[in-house]
């Protein structure tokens, strides 16, 4: 058992400040355990969003020592020893209170993405046939737990606040899951280029590095979508090919 100091961001009427709390750390504890302990012992009103505490719901996103992470999946044993641990809310979203941020923009953006539209069923009983090899790619994207850490770390949103021009990594993954779905027949490339601003991504891969589900956001979702957009809008040869193959 060791005592560790946590510098936790607390909002106040004039904005906010880091406040130091000390608590006991026992074997196997994660950062969220420490926050709960502090909440129970010192600060009943310390606001933190959490549900499953198992890395599955994606609620407890925050920045631990400056790294966007899930608090429930960050083990205390991975923290540098003897140093205080800083915990602050995600920077890319407005703070509601303490560690809780307003992530509603993500729900709005998602709603603006054209919904799943399947081709007509393959079998008379109204079902479809899909090969596992064709859905492997989509299943990777569907692992997303919507923790929005990728949105948080993406500098287009974090630094430049272009939430209304760029949908962000999470929604690129969502788009990819729909666009590459073997049953889907909707075309989202136009939206990707314009409304969802895929061109704003400059592929610096921060989203991939923070993803707790290890989704290869940049390589498997964003870049293939950029290529699909290029097929349609930036490739004169493809355009010719399309005209003649019609």
């Amino acid at each position: 058992m060791a005592k560790v100091v946590f510098n936790i961001w607390r909002t106040n009427p004039s904005g906010g400040e880091f406040r130091a709390y000390e608590t006991d750390i026992t074997e196997g504890m994660v950062v969220l355990d420490a926050v709960h302990q502090i909440q129970a012992e010192h600060a009943n009103d310390l606001a933190v969003r959490w549900n499953c505490k198992a890395g599955k719901c994606g609620s407890c996103s925050a920045e631990i020592n400056g790294h966007p992470k899930l608090m429930c999946m960050t083990r205390m044993s991975d923290m540098p020893e003897g140093k205080p641990v800083s915990i602050q809310p995600m920077k890319a979203f407005p703070v509601i209170k303490d560690l809780v941020t307003d992530v509603s923009v993500n729900y709005r953006v998602k709603k603006s993405i054209k919904k799943f539209k399947p081709r007509s069923p393959d079998a008379p009983d109204g079902t479809w046939r899909m090969a596992q090899v064709d859905i492997d790619r989509v299943q990777e994207f569907r692992k997303c737990i919507e923790c929005f850490l990728c949105q948080d770390v993406c500098h287009v949103l974090r630094e430049h606040a272009l939430h209304d021009k760029f949908a962000g990594p999470r929604h690129m993954v969502y788009n990819a899951a729909l666009e590459m779905h073997p049953l889907d027949i909707e075309d989202r490339t136009g939206d990707l280029k314009n409304a969802h601003g895929i061109g704003f991504c400059n592929i610096t891969k921060c989203c991939t590095t923070v993803c707790p589900e290890n989704i290869h956001i940049t390589d498997n979702a964003i870049i293939p979508l950029k290529e699909r957009v290029a097929d349609k809008f930036y490739d004169p040869l493809m355009k010719l090919f399309r005209i003649f193959s019609k």
């Binding site: 909440q39 009943n44 009103d45 310390l46 606001a47 933190v48 509601i96 209170k97 303490d98 809780v100």
Partner: peptide
């Protein structure tokens, strides 16, 4: 304690 805004207690 605290106020009504996001207060887990």
């Amino acid at each position: 304690g605290g106020n009504r805004g996001f207060n887990p207690g």
